[in-house]
Amino acid sequence: MNDQNLLTALQTGSEQGYKELVDNYQEKVLNICLGYFPVYQDAEDLTQEVFVKLFETIDNFRGEASLSTWVYRVAVNKCLEKIRYRKRGKRMAFFQSLIGLEEHAGHVASHFDHPGVALENKERTQLLYQHIERLSDKQRTAFILHRMEGLSYQEIAGIMEVSLSSVESLLFRAKQNLKKSLRYYYEKQMI
């Protein structure tokens, strides 16, 4: 089924259409989610939420972008929504830790369970994810889509609804900030 037929099937509520959308895109969505949340169970739960959202909002899809752009956009927005939700939770946890109720720790710092990472690289990759987590939402999204998903600047611009030059600038700044953050970390380690 091509994207146009798949879209028609989805908009008519066809069971086959839903199943095909999941089959075609679940790997992409799962890997995007793992880019933001490198904990398999969290990423899988989020993938599920992304598809539920896609099915619920299929009637709003006007076909202005390709189906894959739309799927990526919903996945990215869902991940960013989750990050904001967790940040709110962290703020609460911080206040709780101030009054001695709970320990405060970063998400990636305390959990890392990415099944695509070899054991010998785990520590270093975890460190990298901790620093990716510190990037701004836009820089992080551009970085994940380009560096982890291998999407072109054009595709990223479509997903993030920004210009090509903005994508270039976001990626440049993301790499610079990542290097700066890692440099600071290693310098501290050497002291």
């Binding site: 790997e27 695509g116 990472v117 690289n121 460190l127 990298l128 560096r147 990542l178 890692l182």
Partner: peptide, 16 residues
């Protein structure tokens, strides 16, 4: 820094 950044090239895609 380069070694850490290059670990991303070795991350395998996870199937659903």
């Amino acid at each position: 820094i380069e070694r850490t950044l290059s670990t991303l090239d070795e991350v395998e895609r996870v199937s659903g």
